[in-house]
Nucleic acid binder design. Structure first.
Lengths: 124, 124
DNA sequence: TTGACACGTTAGTACTTTCTTACCTATATT
DNA sequence: AATATAGGTAAGAAAGTACTAACGTGTCAA
């Protein structure tokens, strides 16, 4: 890793990805997402599972919405929320890049490929 | 989803998982993790990439450490940090439970299985 | 059309996070 | 031994977050 001569600000891609994780980084919001796993739900249905007030839930839903994790559909006087996979997938793929840090098999495979590569280089 | 009669507090499992996502929910910390992807690094090597002061980086590293995402090894006067896969894996597996929300193929498969199940039920 | 229900927004408060500066200890270098 | 390097910790300021109570709008039901 070459040391930088001028230190750039944290890149915007990291900032965006961080906002996504931050949206998941609250127990109530994480719970909301889990509750939505079973399908779409109205706000009052969701709020019934929590001790905090309904406005608090509304605010959490707003955070999830602006992170792109949920969508709102109006239906009569209800607003039904449902999970939106696109951003969740982004989170998933960010983390998957670290798979070798927990998958021993993958790490060994990488080491092997690295050795192969070095051998080719040597014989070339 | 049966409505709860008494609303329990957000379960501790959600709280723990949220702490993990919260640790990733900051641009600088996310960047630190990315920098550690290439192997272990000393604090001053990491800090060189940032505009914020070194103590700020120390503090971010502490957050990552208490979330279990990194480990510290002392080597002379340096402290080298490296990624720890275990907690990263927990985050990965939490998100993977939502795979069907972005994988159309998986969603169709689930629908098919559901129809099969319903048919068996009907003929039984 | 009056009342109840669903839900968002606002204002204000308490708490938490993030940063900097100052300072301290431990290790390496000369 | 004196000095430089590495890096953690503490205190305090500034900004952000999460909550509640109060209120407003739109929808349904009697």
């Amino acid at each position: 890793m070459p040391r930088p001569t001028r230190r750039p600000p944290v890149p915007p891609s990291a900032a965006r990805q961080a906002r996504l994780f931050a949206a998941l980084g609250d127990p109530s919001r994480l719970r909301l997402v889990e509750l939505l796993q079973g399908g779409d739900r109205a706000v009052h249905e969701l709020a019934a599972w929590f001790q905090v007030s309904r406005p608090a839930i509304s605010q959490h839903l707003r955070v999830l919405r602006s992170a792109g994790l949920v969508r709102e559909d109006r239906a009569g006087r209800e607003r039904r929320y449902r999970l939106e996979g696109r951003e969740m997938r982004r989170a998933y793929e960010w983390i998957r890049r670290y798979e070798r840090f927990w998958d021993e098999r993958l790490r060994r495979l990488e080491a092997t490929l690295e050795r192969e590569r070095a051998r080719e280089e040597h014989s070339a």
